[in-house]
Write a protein that binds this DNA or RNA. Structure first.
Lengths: 119, 119
DNA sequence: TAAACATATGAATGATTGTTCATATGTTTA
DNA sequence: TAAACATATGAACAATCATTCATATGTTTA
């Protein structure tokens, strides 16, 4: 059903002022997209397990694979995603590459997630 | 290549003590799974937009659809997911159903996400 | 009570994504 | 430098998921 020029909402009673106000406060589409992409990275148990492992210590890909009982390839793929999201960083040490947490936002975010679950 | 009894890691030099320590500190598989499922809910821009809308005000499905420029059906499906994750709650008011944030963890988690992005 | 309104939901579909497999790149050691 | 070791990566496949469409459920009003 058409409301004004837009054919979107089928309801009769749209609170135009409320809608306008919300739209005014909303971050840009780009920011919303980036935010969703960031949380998408947290939304996989393999990556969550990797992050928890890195809570305890810096660790090489090899040890990570052993710890998580996964193939080196699978771990490497996920590390790449974590790195692109700037959640982890890495440095080379001889043949190994050592991964570590990029900053403390990861701990806070995961901590809040845990709090939410335990209610 | 076999290390001990397990055929997992192909590396030669596994730091067994480190691996053991990490595994010891790690939450249960169930907790890790639940945590990933929770963040998966944040990992979609439609749901993020719904949550931002609810930051400003309680709102009915109809207004939400109008605000986000989406069909009522799509919004309703996503609201169900947010509700199952206990991120939003709802009450009926006449013909409408009003949705609102369940608690303040949502704000904290999204806030931390934003902080991470702006670095 | 019938019609209109508001929301919820099941099935189908196209798109996204995690893992595997094979292999390439980079580093050390003999 | 050749071989071994450690990690990275592209392609393919199966599984997951957000939206759409059609329709059902629930509420109000005439």
């Amino acid at each position: 059903m058409a409301i004004g020029d837009v054919d979107v909402c089928e309801c009769m009673e749209v609170h135009k002022d409320r809608v306008e106000n919300i739209l005014h406060q909303m971050p840009s589409e780009d920011q919303l997209y980036d935010l969703a992409e960031l949380f998408k990275v947290f939304g996989d148990s393999t990556r969550i397990r990797i992050l928890f492992a890195l809570f305890e210590a810096e660790i090489c890909v090899c040890d990570l694979a052993e710890t998580l009982n996964m193939t080196q390839s699978a771990v490497s793929h996920q590390l790449k995603i974590l790195k692109q999201a700037r959640l982890v960083r890495s440095r080379r040490e001889g043949k190994s590459v050592i991964y570590f947490l990029a900053d403390d936002h990861v701990r806070t975010i995961i901590g809040q997630g845990f709090e939410h679950l335990s209610e």
